[in-house]
């Protein structure tokens, strides 16, 4: 029975004013708002008419509108690059009806525990474009660390360089339809049997996510034969907080095992 004011803006220009209003938040169609309490919400901005549901290619980048759902993105990328890390990750995220609702922009803004989006996007060095008070483009990594950027601003798109990577994605969960307790995203570029570039992101660590810079550096410019994976997992320097059904100690052990498996699999392929 709480009276919530609904706004249906038709174009992005109307947004900054709306975003400044106390207790008014954007609603892209995802499920984050309904999961929380509605008590502090005075108004909701329905983003449905803003034409934010698109995937386009510009200046060597893939640009994804914030209103694009997981299902949209899976469908789009499956057509052009079925092995894309986002296809692997998002297919396993949430459930079919939720993938039809959860938006890329909403997940990037909230970074909810059930997100399978963030690891791959961080590995891809994605950027977000904001409108509103803090309008402009920022690296996703900075955006997640800087709460100021979220105030009175809205993500309108997420983009990353359209390069071809070999990828690996692993999610550790209880049953299949579950929040991942952690996920591992690996991107690899090999040239003439030499590791030219590699990105490793673990989501779910005590700091929400960790980029494994040391391991990345240690593997770069090695040939595939030279790369020694055995033992990398046990030396991995990440911290976890204990979760339901999983202690911190176990998660640290498990992420090491799965990381080694992932690296072996991706180097083999």
């Amino acid at each position: 029975m709480r009276e919530i004011r609904w706004y249906y803006p038709e174009n992005l220009k109307q947004l900054p004013d709306l975003l400044k209003r106390e207790g008014v938040i954007p609603h892209g169609g995802g499920t984050g708002i309904l999961r929380g309490s509605l008590n502090h919400i005075e108004g909701l901005i329905d983003l449905g008419n803003l034409q934010l549901r698109y995937v386009r290619y510009r200046n060597g980048k893939i640009e994804v509108g914030a209103g694009t759902t997981y299902a949209d993105l899976i469908e789009h990328l499956s057509g052009t690059d079925p092995d894309h890390i986002l296809v692997k990750a998002l297919k396993a995220a949430a459930s079919t009806p939720l993938r039809n609702r959860i938006t890329v922009g909403g997940s990037a803004a909230f970074f909810p525990v059930w997100s399978d989006l963030m690891g791959p996007l961080l590995a891809l060095d994605a950027e977000v474009t904001l409108t509103g008070e803090k309008g402009g483009s920022y690296s996703l990594s900075d955006y997640t660390k800087n709460g100021e950027l979220r105030k009175m601003s809205l993500i309108t798109s997420v983009q990353w360089k359209n390069k071809s990577w070999t990828s690996f994605y692993h999610r550790e969960s209880r049953t299949k339809v579950d929040y991942p307790v952690f996920s591992i995203s690996i991107l690899l570029k090999v040239r003439k049997d030499t590791i030219e570039d590699i990105k490793i992101i673990i989501v779910g660590t005590a700091r929400r996510f960790t980029q494994c810079l040391q391991i990345e550096e240690s593997l770069k410019s090695l040939t595939l034969d030279q790369a020694r994976i055995e033992g990398i997992g046990s030396k991995l320097d990440v911290q976890f907080t204990g979760r339901r059904n999983f202690s911190a100690e176990y998660l640290k052990h498990c992420v090491g095992i799965q990381l080694e498996r992932g690296l072996k699999a991706i180097l083999r392929s």
Binding site: S95, W114, R174, T175, K176, V177, D178, Y179, R244
Partner: peptide, 16 residues
């Protein structure tokens, strides 16, 4: 009880 919801009390789906 800390997990009184299907998101946190895991029963099998068809995928499992």
């Amino acid at each position: 009880m800390l997990n009184p919801r299907f998101w946190d009390y895991k029963i099998y789906t068809a995928l499992d």
